[in-house]
Computed example of a mutant assay.
Amino acid sequence: MSEFKDKSVIVTGSSSGIGEVIAISYASKGANVTLCGRDSQRLHDAAEKCKKAGAAAGNSIKTVEAAGDITDSRVQEEIIQKTVEAFGKLDILVVNHGLVLSYEPSLDECTEENFDATINTNLKAALFLIKKAVSHLEKTRGSIVCVSSIGTKVTCCYLISQSLSKVAMDHMVRILSLQLGPKGIRINTVNPTWVQSRISRETGSAAAGGVFEAVGKLMLSETPLKDQVSGPEEQADVVLFLSSHAARMINGETIVVDGGLVNKGHPCNFQSLLRGIVPPPKQT
């Protein structure tokens, strides 16, 4: 029997991409899952996939759909309340939601509006959702896993706002590991490499010349671990590991899942490789 059977799990940003696969992975192992996102239809579709995955593994799991803007404190309260009402407890919180609003090839392209929206979503909402969940996680000696980025380990000069938000998230996790550890709650981050997902496609389409798609291919080509491409499944496997009993002594850590790419440095900074792919920063 899976250790996740009948566990209560919240996965934010789970209407697509890495979050959806994380939710489905927990469901396949018998966990009851609350899915969170802004698009109610995509959220419903993801919940149905979770139920099918649970049934395929012989588990009759329950799901909760919490649609809304994660930066809204009332939505955060609703996510926690709905979960505890439906499942009776909270065992695992996966903070996966994230925002990449724009491609920022220079400081001139970084706007206060985009910066504030990115920080509010990626960092502030994460912190205060965790705060609201602590009293419930303390009862179950539960676990928190945040999904960060390899952009915290190597500089990516084209994503100023997003990179700063994730660097802050990693340090938030280190601080909270000291505060929550005595309550029996572990907290860690998974730091993914570039993964093909809805958010990367949408950001790429908004950037001139399909920049993000080209950069993603470049990152994959530069990954030392050849013939193995990291998708959402590889990230989900590590999220589940960090919330499992096997990781019971791992607390406050950032686990990079990138095939060794950070050991080479971020390809976005290799100007010789990027010629013809990424436009140069504006000259002032």
Rank of each mutant, 00 (worst) to 15 (best):
V145C: 03
D108P: 02
G88V: 08
A126N: 12
H171D: 12
G181Q: 03
N96D: 00
H136T: 03
K82W: 02
G181C: 10
L137W: 02
V167C: 15
R186F: 05
L176Y: 13
S135F: 08
T83L: 01
I160W: 13
E109D: 15
E113F: 09
L93I: 04
M172N: 11
E113G: 07
A168Y: 02
E109T: 10
S148K: 01
I80P: 04
D116Y: 07
L90K: 03
K132Q: 12
P105M: 01
K124F: 07
L180V: 00
S165F: 02
C156M: 15
L178C: 13
V100D: 06
I150H: 11
K183E: 06
E109Q: 13
V95W: 06
H136Q: 12
Q81P: 02
L180I: 00
Y103N: 06
L176Q: 13
R141F: 03
H136M: 05
H136D: 10
I92D: 04
F87Q: 06
L107M: 15
V167G: 13
S149L: 07
K166N: 10
S135P: 06
S148T: 07
V145G: 00
L176R: 11
S161E: 01
I150M: 15
Q81H: 13
I80Q: 04
K89I: 04
K132M: 07
E113I: 03
C156H: 13
Y103D: 01
I175F: 13
T118E: 00
V95G: 04
C157V: 14
V100P: 05
I130V: 14
C156Y: 13
N120T: 05
A117C: 02
A133K: 09
V154N: 14
R174M: 13
V190D: 05
L90T: 05
T140D: 08
I187M: 08
G184T: 00
T140K: 08
C157G: 14
K183M: 07
R141E: 12
R141I: 01
H171Y: 14
P182R: 02
D116N: 13
V167Y: 11
T152R: 08
V95K: 11
R174P: 06
T155L: 15
L99F: 12
C157L: 14
L99E: 03
C157D: 15
D116A: 11
V95Y: 09
C146H: 09
G151E: 12
Q162M: 12
F128M: 11
N114R: 09
Q179L: 14
G151T: 14
V84E: 11
S163E: 13
N114E: 00
S106I: 01
E109V: 01
F87S: 04
L180N: 08
V84T: 05
H136W: 11
T189N: 11
L123K: 10
D91N: 12
I92T: 04
E138V: 00
K82G: 01
I80K: 09
L159P: 06
L127G: 06
T140H: 07
V173K: 08
N120A: 11
L90N: 05
I185V: 12
V190K: 08
E85M: 11
I130Y: 06
V190R: 07
L93R: 04
